[in-house]
């Protein structure tokens, strides 16, 4: 799993421009699935038929593949790029960040106007410097509407911990790929690598409508509360996968959170409960599709969400893997 996650953190996947990460995912999953297609929003759907033909039921597993990004809204005469955020990013935390443009691979650094205090910094004070001399020089590699994401490597720290800029949510993508490769179910599995989650679960909304599954399960990251003066969360790195009970978009029906807890018990995996009133996920948008879709979720606890250095425990990934496989095998 570690290598799979590492591979998935390399491509840039700005919301609305997920082609690079999508291509990487597709290359890995294509041999393992019966069918795949894309849609207008940029979602990637992969289908793995049920192990028997008896059931017409489907489980839709959703992992968003996009990450927050900086969208270019203007290019000035000296070749500096003015930007606006796609997804939850904070202006003050971006100064000095290294970024890469998904489309051309062009790299740059985020700079800020000097006359503003750090705490008052807004996106209108920021720009990206790609080392261009003039507007026309810049426009060879970057157009208005292009998007850049963080450009930082993948590292292992301490025991079983990994750090990367897009673990939110490439870890979820890795878990979905793993399930498509190895899990067995009497339900047809529709894997959705969803687009545009960071701008409001737009991909998930249309995916829910298109697939209208019997049950949906969302794989995502949830911030842990185990660092000094962290925002409150009962989640701890290394204490197991988190079964979603509540997030900012969704309250999960007890029936389905209990199924996941049972699955954890079946495989003796450690687990925790996610109550995260300020964390968003695709779950809420899927739940609302058509006449309503029972939706549940598994979350991987992570530190430093929203920064270039997100930290996750591989032990939690393993626990998630086991719980997901068992959950899928028991659907009938």
């Amino acid at each position: 799993m570690k290598d799979l996650i590492r591979t998935l953190t390399v491509p840039s996947g700005p919301s609305g421009d997920e082609f690079a990460i999508k291509e990487s995912i597709l290359r890995i999953v294509e041999p393992h699935v019966d069918e795949w297609y894309e849609d207008v929003l940029g979602n990637l759907y992969v289908i793995k038929k049920a192990r028997s033909e008896i059931s017409e039921k489907t489980v839709m597993i959703v992992a968003h593949m996009d990450e927050p990004a900086l969208s270019v809204i203007d290019i000035d005469e000296d070749g500096f790029l003015r930007i606006a955020p796609l997804g939850p990013l904070h202006a003050a935390s971006l100064v000095g960040a290294r970024v890469v443009f998904a489309r051309t691979g062009r790299r740059g650094v985020v700079g800020a106007e000097h006359n503003v205090a750090l705490k008052d910094l807004e996106f209108s004070h920021l720009f990206i410097d790609i080392g261009a001399q003039t507007q026309s020089d810049a426009m060879r590699d970057v157009q208005i509407g292009d998007a850049a994401t963080f450009a930082y490597g993948f590292e292992e720290v301490g025991n079983q911990l990994i750090v990367g800029h897009a673990l939110d949510n490439r870890v979820g993508c890795a878990l979905l790929i793993d399930a498509l490769q190895h899990a067995q179910s009497d339900y047809t599995i529709v894997g959705v690598f969803s687009a545009q989650k960071e701008v409001g679960s737009r991909g998930a909304k249309v995916a829910g409508h298109r697939i209208h599954p019997t049950i949906a399960l969302v794989l995502d990251i949830s911030p842990s509360g185990d660092t000094p003066k962290a925002e409150r969360s009962s989640l701890t790195l290394g204490a197991g996968v988190a079964v979603k009970v509540l997030d900012a978009t969704m309250v999960v029906s007890k029936k389905w959170s209990n199924h996941l807890i049972e699955a954890a018990k079946n495989v003796s995996a450690s687990y925790q409960i996610e109550v995260a009133p300020r964390t968003t996920s695709d779950a809420g948008a899927i739940f609302l599709a058509q006449s309503g879709i029972p939706t549940c979720g598994l979350a991987i606890p992570a530190r430093y969400v929203g920064t270039p250095s997100q930290m996750v425990s591989l032990a939690d990934v393993t626990s998630a893997q086991q719980v997901l496989h068992n959950f899928l095998s028991l659907l009938s």
């Binding site: 849609d39 207008v40 929003l41 969208s71 809204i73 606006a84 955020p85 796609l86 737009r202 909304k205 249309v206 409508h209 298109r210």
Partner: peptide, 17 residues
């Protein structure tokens, strides 16, 4: 600019997109 919105916001998310 990324501020503001118009009817495309509702239309492009209708049904399957």
């Amino acid at each position: 600019t990324i501020g503001g919105a118009n009817d495309v916001g509702a239309i492009h998310l209708t049904e399957m997109g």
